[in-house]
């Protein structure tokens, strides 16, 4: 691999040649990682999309269930049900907001420790797409 003394049949490659090849290899590598991170970002997006709906449903269900349980035990008929359903819904919305923040982080919009260097190149093209979700 690393020949200290060049073999006589092949003259040592010129520095320009080496740097050109190195640049080409680096460009190819960068392209590969960009494609890789785009694919990873897509998978991440699908997985987050699947989580959002259930998050809202589960929050209302838990709120309703707990509220109904407390009402049943304490005999305060609609009070806990109403309070905890709204509280649950609030928590669900908060969770969804956090999820989308996480997605922004994954897309490199906000600098964070997650996927920091791999995702940064595609940051500018994403925000318009994200705002209307």
């Amino acid at each position: 691999m690393t020949d200290r003394e060049p073999t006589p049949s092949r003259p040592p490659p010129s520095l320009e040649d080496v740097s050109a090849r190195l640049a080409a290899a680096q460009a190819r590598k960068a392209q590969e990682t960009a494609a890789d991170s785009r694919r990873k970002g897509k998978a991440e997006g699908i997985s987050i999309g699947m989580r959002v709906g259930i998050e809202l449903l589960a929050s209302v269900l838990v709120g309703g269930g707990l509220g109904w349980f407390f009402d049943d035990k304490l005999g305060t008929s609609p009070i806990f049900l109403l309070a905890l359903v709204s509280l649950g819904f609030t928590a669900g919305v908060l969770n969804v907001i956090r999820l989308t923040k996480r997605m922004d982080l994954a897309q490199g919009i906000v600098h964070g420790k997650a996927n920091d260097n791999s995702q940064r190149p595609k940051a500018p093209e994403k925000p318009s797409d994200d705002d209307d979700e």
Binding site: A58, S59, A91
Partner: peptide
């Protein structure tokens, strides 16, 4: 607290 209890359900 609510959101903590939602976790296993979701």
């Amino acid at each position: 607290t609510m959101s903590y209890f939602i976790r296993p359900v979701s």
